[in-house]
Amino acid sequence: MDITKRFHRIIAIYFQLQGRSVVKAQDLADRFDVSLRTIYRDMRALEQAGIPIYGEAGTGYSLSEGYKLAPASFTKEEILSLAASEKLMQKFVDQDMFRNFSTAIAKVRSFLRYSDKSNIMQLEENMWMSSPNFMFNEKVPEALSILFEGITLRKIIDMEYRAVMSDEANTRKIEPVGIFHESNFWYFIAYCHLRQEHRQFRIDRIQKISRTDEPFRKEHKPLSHYIERNDSRPITTIRIGVERTIAHYMEWERMHFGFACEETQGKEVLMTFQSNAPIEEFARWYLRFADRARIIEPDTLKQCVRDILQNITI
């Protein structure tokens, strides 16, 4: 047995316990790629070391209320990751949540040594990330924070939402289930009282939002259930040939369309997709490269591209 590896795993498990109200054994086993039996042994080792852990079958492990160790020292790599994470948060979350994160990071920094603070400042001065304006509605800077509050407190959210095919927003009551990021946009799944079903929404289309004190009226499954349900849409096999000189320009977005594999043949790259996106959506993306590419299959994609081109007026 690698004693050093086990020691680091046990310490990491402790920090998981200290950072969460409940930790499931299976989640720990998946995180550290070990068996459940190994996790049980590690938990016993922590208990024997005097850490007050209690567990309940089917629920998980927790630290006794109020138990904390003194703030731990940070490694150089962990300290530098704090600066990098703050820059990433500035790009990927809305203004309100970034302010909250910055305040939390400032509290963590107060425990650092002077040299560590200097290292962070050095990195911050030499790191820059642009923020895409379309990711959030600037008039609703607190959207993410309110949605997270609704999820954790199980409170109904009031919002005004403009659907993609609508010019005006309508008022909805929702019960938010979870939030995810995909293809440079933030989305969330919520039960919509207006439609009386679980729907997917995009955060930048929120025009107004507020949390009520009204509790959820329904029980909801985990976010993964609804994402998997969305992924169950019919799959279309698509094959295209692209000139090698421009094929790499397609790498940024092709995963969104179910890119599966590619094969180079002479001056051409043959790409295969297993796409569950609407065929017209794929066609409009393909048209960006159409003068240097060809559609191998299916015929429905060829016809869709012809129809779009036929409607173009110059």
Rank of each mutant, 00 (worst) to 15 (best):
M1N: 11
K5V: 00
R9W: 08
I13Y: 04
Q16L: 11
Q16C: 05
G19M: 05
Q26H: 02
D27K: 06
D30C: 01
R31Y: 04
I39R: 06
A45V: 06
A49N: 12
G55K: 15
A57W: 07
L63E: 04
K68I: 04
K76G: 10
E77W: 02
E77V: 13
K87V: 09
L88H: 05
V93Q: 02
D96T: 09
R99I: 10
T103E: 07
I105N: 03
I105Q: 07
D116W: 00
K117M: 09
I120L: 13
M121A: 15
W128Y: 12
M129N: 01
M135T: 03
V140S: 07
V140W: 03
A143S: 13
L144G: 02
F148K: 12
I156M: 13
M165K: 15
D167W: 02
E168Q: 14
N170L: 07
I174M: 03
P176S: 05
E182F: 15
N184R: 15
W186D: 01
F188G: 07
R195D: 08
D204P: 03
I206T: 05
S210R: 14
R217D: 14
P234N: 06
T237I: 06
R244V: 06
T245N: 10
Y249W: 11
W252K: 10
H256K: 09
G258T: 06
F273H: 09
L287M: 15
R288P: 03
F289Q: 09
T313P: 00
